[in-house]
Amino acid sequence: KTVEVNGVKYDFDNPEQAREMAERIAKSLGLQVRLEGDTFKIE
């Protein structure tokens, strides 16, 4: 899975870890996480 923030992509081998990281980043920035294919987009 991939986490994308402001056009910057971070790859994770563990999908659960990617989801947790995406949620943590989104919460700290006051944004939403949206799953698009294999990418968690933070917008």
Score class of each variant (00 low, 15 high):
residue 1 K to T: 13
residue 1 K to R: 13
residue 2 T to R: 13
residue 2 T to S: 14
residue 3 V to Q: 02
residue 4 E to A: 06
residue 4 E to V: 13
residue 4 E to N: 07
residue 5 V to C: 15
residue 5 V to M: 08
residue 5 V to A: 04
residue 6 N to L: 14
residue 6 N to Y: 13
residue 6 N to G: 10
residue 6 N to T: 03
residue 6 N to S: 07
residue 7 G to S: 04
residue 7 G to C: 13
residue 7 G to L: 03
residue 7 G to P: 02
residue 7 G to A: 03
residue 8 V to W: 10
residue 8 V to E: 07
residue 9 K to Y: 08
residue 9 K to Q: 08
residue 9 K to V: 11
residue 10 Y to G: 00
residue 11 D to T: 15
residue 12 F to K: 01
residue 12 F to S: 01
residue 12 F to W: 04
residue 13 D to Q: 11
residue 13 D to P: 10
residue 13 D to F: 08
residue 13 D to Y: 06
residue 14 N to M: 07
residue 14 N to H: 08
residue 14 N to P: 04
residue 14 N to R: 08
residue 14 N to G: 06
residue 14 N to I: 07
residue 15 P to D: 08
residue 15 P to H: 12
residue 15 P to L: 11
residue 15 P to Q: 09
residue 15 P to C: 15
residue 15 P to T: 10
residue 16 E to L: 10
residue 16 E to N: 10
residue 17 Q to P: 02
residue 17 Q to W: 08
residue 17 Q to T: 11
residue 17 Q to D: 13
residue 18 A to N: 00
residue 18 A to R: 02
residue 18 A to F: 05
residue 18 A to Q: 01
residue 18 A to K: 00
residue 19 R to E: 05
residue 19 R to G: 03
residue 20 E to W: 12
residue 20 E to N: 09
residue 20 E to K: 13
residue 21 M to I: 09
residue 21 M to N: 05
residue 22 A to Y: 04
residue 22 A to E: 00
residue 22 A to L: 05
residue 22 A to D: 00
residue 23 E to H: 13
residue 23 E to P: 00
residue 23 E to R: 11
residue 24 R to W: 13
residue 24 R to G: 05
residue 24 R to A: 11
residue 24 R to T: 09
residue 25 I to G: 00
residue 25 I to W: 13
residue 25 I to S: 02
residue 25 I to K: 01
residue 25 I to V: 09
residue 26 A to D: 00
residue 26 A to T: 01
residue 26 A to E: 00
residue 26 A to V: 02
residue 26 A to W: 04
residue 27 K to S: 10
residue 27 K to Q: 12
residue 27 K to Y: 11
residue 27 K to E: 10
residue 28 S to V: 12
residue 28 S to K: 14
residue 28 S to I: 14
residue 28 S to R: 14
residue 28 S to D: 10
residue 29 L to E: 02
residue 31 L to C: 15
residue 31 L to T: 06
residue 31 L to G: 10
residue 32 Q to L: 12
residue 32 Q to A: 13
residue 32 Q to F: 12
residue 33 V to L: 11
residue 33 V to K: 01
residue 34 R to C: 13
residue 34 R to M: 07
residue 34 R to W: 07
residue 34 R to G: 03
residue 35 L to S: 05
residue 35 L to G: 02
residue 36 E to K: 04
residue 36 E to W: 08
residue 36 E to I: 10
residue 36 E to L: 06
residue 37 G to N: 08
residue 37 G to I: 04
residue 37 G to F: 06
residue 37 G to V: 04
residue 37 G to T: 02
residue 37 G to A: 06
residue 38 D to I: 05
residue 38 D to E: 08
residue 39 T to V: 13
residue 39 T to A: 05
residue 40 F to S: 01
residue 40 F to C: 04
residue 41 K to I: 15
residue 41 K to S: 04
residue 41 K to D: 02
residue 41 K to R: 10
residue 42 I to S: 01
residue 42 I to N: 01
residue 43 E to A: 10
residue 43 E to G: 14
residue 43 E to M: 12
residue 43 E to I: 13
